[in-house]
Write a protein that binds this DNA or RNA. Structure first.
Ligand SMILES: Nc1ccn([C@H]2C[C@H](O)[C@@H](COP(=O)(O)OP(=O)(O)OP(=O)(O)O)O2)c(=O)n1
Ligand SMILES: [Mg+2]
Length: 790
DNA sequence: ATCCTCCCCTAC
DNA sequence: TAAGGTAGGGGAGGAT
C-alpha cells in the first residue's frame, strides 16, 4: 500500500470508480481555486496559508464567500470531506451525529474566517470552536554491578574533542565563567522536542528549503514464517508536490522462533499490491503548478531555474555533508545525538534486563510501593562543566558547531543558568543566542556520557529491587524493600524536599535519607549532579523529580488520589485558595518582597512548588496539550481535575482519557518495565538529514548503507526479519522559507511494505527489496529527501 | 466485540 | 556550517 501523509492533492489514493470520481472532483475544484487565487488582489495577506478547510452545512456567510476569503488568502478549500488532508471544518452548528463524526477534527464557526479576515491575521481557531464544551470547566470544586558495561561500538568519535574542546573551554575560560546556579526554568519540561516531520512547532520557523531524510525499517517477525517477496509494483506519483520521500520498513522475526509468536504482520502484504490507478508522472521534476498550491508558491529563486536540490549541492560544503558523499551514513551516525540516545537506551535495557534476569522479582506489584526516579541535571551540559570551576558560572549549551557564532545547530542540553534566559534543550543556536548572547557552546563528549552512565547504573542497581532504564541519564528504581513508605493511608502532613528523619532502621531507610545518599554517591562517582524523586508510583516519582530539579530531591508527601495529593498537583492554586495548607515550603517571613533581590525571588520561586501544567504529565506532549486547550481550555492540572473522565475519553480516546483523569489525581498503577521480558518487535534505521541525491547510483549506495546498518543491528541481537517497510520523504515543491540546514524541509511522506523472500539479516537481500519498494514510487531522485526506513 | 494495519504521538 | 533517531503506546477505521 502506498501511504502518503501531508496535504498532497492526490493523497486519498482511493481505488475504483468511486475514488476516481472523487479525485476528479477534487482536481476540478482545485483548478477553480487557482483561478480564484489568481484573481485575488496580489497584496492580500496570506493568512490562511497551510489551512485546508471543509465546510459543513449552511453557513452565515454563504459557502462561496467563505471559499473566496480562504482561497484568496492562501488557504485551500475542499468540497468533500477528505479526512486525510483537511486541517479544519467550518460549521455553524452540528447535529449529534456530525458531532460524533467530527469528534477528531477542529471544527470552527464561520466567523473564525470572517473575523480572521477582519483582523487580517489568523486568529486561534479554538476561540470559535463549534464544539466547545459549555461551562463545567471552571468550577472551583474542587548488584552484580561490576559486569555492567557497554560494549562500545567501534569507536565513538569523541567529537572534535580535544581540539575544539580545549579551545573552547580552556582557551575561552578567561572570557567566560560558567555557572552552576540555576534560575528556575527548571519547571519546564518543555525542552523543545524535536518534531520528526513537517511540523508547525519547528521552533516557529518555516521550512524554506529542502530537507532530506531517508529511513529504513525492519520489523522483527517470527523466524519460521515464510513469505513472499513483495515485489514492487510501479506506481507513479501524481503531480503531487514535488518532494519525494520514501522509507521502507522491514518486519523482522526473532531468530528464535518462539519469540514473537508469529504475529506475522507480513500476512498483510501477501496480496500483491495493485498499483494505484494513477498515471505515472515519472519523476518529473516539478515546477509545480500543481493544483492547490497557494500563492506565494513561486519558487524562491525565480532567477535560478535549476532544481533546488542541484542548487543546494552546488555549494561545496553542502555536497561534503550530504548523502552524495560516500561514507555519509557512517559519518552521520557518528555525530547524531539522537541516534546515540536511541542506541544507548536499547543497550541499557538489554544490559539491565540481563543483570536482573536471575534475581527474583521482588516487588513492583504491591500497593505500597516506593519508587525512586533519578535523572541527571542537564546531563550533557553537566558533563561539560564538571571539574571546571571556570565554567560553573557561565550559561553553556552542548551543540555541534561550537566553533563559530554563525552556527545554528540544535542544543542537546543547556545548563540551568542558560535556562534562566529562556534557552531550552532542542532549541536552535541562533534563537538561543538571541536570548542569551553570552551563551558558551561546547562540544559533545559521547564517550564520557557512556562512562558516566555506567557508574550511575551500577550505583542504582545496588539499591534496586527492580530497575527500569529510561535513558542514558535517567532511571526508575523500585526501592520498596529498603525504604519505609511514608504515605500510607494516613495523610502525611508535611512533605517536601530533603525531608529529615532520624530513623536508622537497618533495613528500612527513610526516603529522604535514601535520596540524599544516592545523590551523593552519584556525585562522588561521576562529578555530576542528579536529582531524585521518591513517591508511591512512577508518575508521582517523575513529577517529584521535576519539582526537585535542579540539584535537589523531593519526597512526595501523600498518597495517590488523596486530597493532599490533589492539592500538591495544583501547586500555587491551592496555596492561594487555601491558606491553611501547611505544606508551603516558602515561609511567610520573607514576605517583604519589595526588598527582595531578584536572586532571592528566583530562589524562592524555585523552592515553592510550581503549578503543574498538563504538559508536565508523562505522555502529554504538544498534541495532547493542544487538544486539552482547544477542547477544554485546560492548561493546568488543577483545571484538568475539573473535567470528567467521560469527556476526556470522548476527546482523547479511551486509554488516554483515563490516563489523564488518573494522572491529574496522582494515580498511576503502571509497573516498572524492567525489560526482562518481551523481545523487540522491530529494528529500523533512518536518516532525515543531509539526504540529497543527483542520480540513482547515489540512491542505491545510500540504501545499501542503510541496509548494512539494519543488518548489523539484526545480527547484534541475533534476529532476522522478513517484513520490510520502506518510508520515503519527497520534498514539497511549492514551499518557500527556511529550515534546518540540510534538513528535510517540507515533505510528504510515503510508506510501502514488502516481504523479504525469507527471514534474513542479509544486507543484500534487504537492500534489493528496499530498492524495489522505492522504485515503486518512481520519484525523481532530486526530490528524495529522507527517511529510508527499512 | 475483537483483531489488524497503518499511521500519529511521545520520550530521551 | 551540521549531523531532524527510533521503539513502542495507542487511536482510527476497516476486516473478521
Ligand atoms: N531535545 C533533546 C533532549 C535531550 N537530549 C539529550 C541531552 C540531555 O542532556 C539528555 C537527557 O535529557 P533530559 O530530558 O534529562 O534533559 P537534561 O538532562 O539535559 O536536563 P534536565 O534533566 O535537568 O531537565 O538527552 C537531546 O539531545 N535533545
Ligand atoms: Mg536529565
Amino acid at each position: 500500500m502506498e501511504r502518503e501523509r501531508e496535504d498532497d492533492p492526490y493523497e486519498a489514493i482511493e481505488y475504483g470508480d468511486f475514488g476516481t470520481y472523487f479525485r476528479h472532483k477534487k482536481q476540478k475544484l482545485q483548478l477553480q481555486q487557482d483561478e480564484i487565487a489568481a484573481l485575488a488582489p496580489p497584496d492580500l495577506a496570506q493568512i490562511f496559508e497551510g489551512i485546508v478547510v471543509y465546510v459543513n452545512g449552511y453557513t452565515d456567510p454563504p459557502i462561496h464567500e467563505i471559499r473566496n476569503m480562504i482561497v484568496q488568502r492562501g488557504g485551500e478549500f475542499r468540497q468533500y470531506l477528505s479526512k486525510s488532508s483537511i486541517t479544519h471544518i467550518i460549521a455553524s452548528n452540528l447535529t449529534q451525529a456530525k458531532m460524533k463524526e467530527f469528534r477528531n477534527y477542529k471544527v470552527a464557526r464561520p466567523d473564525w474566517i470572517v473575523e480572521s479576515v477582519k483582523a487580517n491575521k489568523l486568529l486561534p481557531w479554538h476561540n470559535f470552536n463549534t464544539l466547545r464544551i459549555p461551562g463545567s470547566l471552571h468550577r472551583l470544586e474542587s548488584q552484580s554491578l561490576t559486569s555492567l558495561s557497554f560494549t562500545r561500538s567501534p569507536s565513538i568519535p569523541q567529537e572534535p574533542p580535544s581540539a575544539v574542546q580545549a579551545a573552547s573551554l580552556a582557551g575561552s575560560a578567561s572570557n567566560d565563567t560558567y555557572s552552576a546556579s540555576e534560575i528556575d526554568a527548571s519547571r519546564d519540561p518543555t525542552t523543545e522536542t524535536h518534531q520528526p516531520s513537517p511540523d508547525p512547532l519547528d521552533d516557529g520557523e518555516f521550512f524554506t528549503e529542502d530537507l532530506d531524510l531517508d529511513q529504513l525499517e525492519l520489523q522483527l517477525t517470527p523466524p519460521n514464517t515464510i513469505n513472499n517477496t513483495g515485489v514492487a509494483s510501479y506506481v507513479k506519483e501524481p503531480l503531487s508536490d514535488t518532494p519525494l520521500s520514501g522509507h521502507e520498513n522491514l518486519n523482522v522475526l526473532p531468530t528464535e522462533s518462539a519469540d514473537l509468536a508469529n504475529t506475522d504482520r507480513a500476512s498483510s502484504f501477501r496480496s500483491p499490491d495493485t498499483p494505484p490507478p494513477i498515471a505515472p508522472t515519472n519523476g518529473t521534476v516539478s515546477i509545480d503548478s500543481s493544483p492547490g498550491i497557494p500563492h506565494g508558491v513561486i519558487a524562491a529563486d525565480v532567477l535560478d531555474t535549476r532544481h533546488p536540490t542541484l542548487i543546494e549541492l552546488s555549494v561545496p560544503w553542502n555536497r561534503l555533508n550530504s548523502s552524495v558523499l560516500p561514507g555519509f551514513v557512517e559519518k552521520f551516525y557518528q555525530s547524531s545525538r539522537l541516534h546515540y540516545l536511541s542506541t544507548w537506551k536499547a543497550k541499557l535495557r538489554e544490559i539491565t534486563a540481563e543483570i536482573q534476569k536471575d534475581k527474583p522479582r521482588l516487588s513492583s506489584i504491591s500497593k505500597d510501593r516506593v519508587i525512586m526516579h533519578i535523572d541527571f541535571d542537564c546531563f550533557f551540559a553537566s558533563v561539560a562543566t564538571r571539574g571546571k570551576p571556570e565554567l560553573q558560572n557561565r550559561p553553556i549549551a552542548v551543540a555541534h558547531g561550537s566553533g563559530g557564532s554563525t552556527s545554528n545547530s540544535e542544543i542537546a542540553s543547556c545548563n540551568y543558568l542558560a535556562r534562566g534566559f529562556g534557552v531550552k534543550n532542542g532549541m536552535q543556536l541562533l534563537k538561543a543566542r538571541s536570548l542569551c548572547p553570552d551563551l558558551l557552546v561546547v562540544p559533545y563528549e559521547f564517550r564520557e556520557y557512556e562512562d558516566i552512565s555506567i557508574e550511575f547504573y551500577k550505583i542504582l542497581l545496588s539499591y534496586a529491587d527492580e530497575l527500569q532504564a529510561v535513558s542514558i541519564d535517567e532511571a526508575l528504581v523500585d526501592v520498596t524493600s529498603r525504604c519505609r513508605s511514608t504515605w500510607g493511608q494516613t495523610e502525611n502532613t508535611h512533605g517536601g524536599p530533603g525531608n529529615e528523619n532520624d530513623d536508622n532502621d537497618m533495613t528500612q531507610t527513610d526516603p529522604g535519607k535514601l535520596a540524599e545518599r544516592v545523590r551523593e554517591e552519584i556525585f562522588q562517582a561521576t562529578g555530576c549532579h542528579a536529582s531524585v524523586g521518591i513517591a508511591p508510583n512512577i508518575l508521582l516519582a517523575k513529577l517529584s523529580t521535576k519539582r526537585a530539579k535542579p540539584h535537589g530531591q523531593y519526597i512526595w508527601p501523600s498518597a495517590p488520589g488523596t486530597e493532599q495529593t490533589l492539592r500538591e498537583l495544583r501547586g500555587p492554586v491551592s496555596l492561594l485558595s487555601s491558606l491553611d495548607v501547611e505544606c508551603t515550603p516558602s515561609s511567610d517571613s520573607d514576605k517583604d518582597s519589595q526588598s527582595r533581590t531578584q536572586d532571592a525571588q528566583v530562589e524562592e520561586r524555585q523552592r515553592a512548588p510550581k503549578e503543574f501544567s498538563v504538559k508536565d504529565l508523562p505522555g502529554v506532549g504538544y498534541k495532547t496539550m493542544q487538544d486539552l486547550q482547544d477542547r477544554f481550555s485546560v492548561h493546568t492540572l488543577y483545571e484538568l481535575q475539573q473535567v470528567s473522565k467521560e469527556e476526556l475519553q470522548r476527546i482523547c480516546g479511551m486509554k488516554t482519557g483515563e490516563m489523564l483523569f488518573n494522572s491529574c489525581r496522582g494515580i498511576d498503577d503502571s509497573t516498572l518495565a524492567s525489560d526482562r521480558e518481551k523481545a523487540r518487535q522491530s529494528v529500523s534505521a533512518e536518516i532525515s538529514w543531509g539526504v540529497r541525491f543527483e542520480n540513482q547510483e547515489q540512491v542505491n549506495i545510500f540504501l545499501q548503507d542503510l541496509s548494512k546498518e539494519v543488518s548489523k543491528r539484526l545480527k547484534e541481537i541475533d534476529r532476522k526479519a522478513k517484513s520490510i517497510v520502506m518510508k520515503v520523504m519527497k520534498r514539497k515543491e511549492y514551499v518557500h522559507g527556511h529550515w534546518k540546514h540540510l534538513g528535510h524541509g517540507p515533505v510528504d511522506q510515503f510508506a510501502r511494505t514488502g516481504q523479504l523472500p525469507m527471514y534474513t539479516d542479509d544486507p543484500e537481500i534487504i537492500a534489493k527489496e528496499a530498492r524495489n519498494l522505492l522504485q515503486y514510487f518512481k520519484f525523481d531522485v532530486l526530490d528524495l529527501r529522507g527517511k529510508f526506513n527499512f
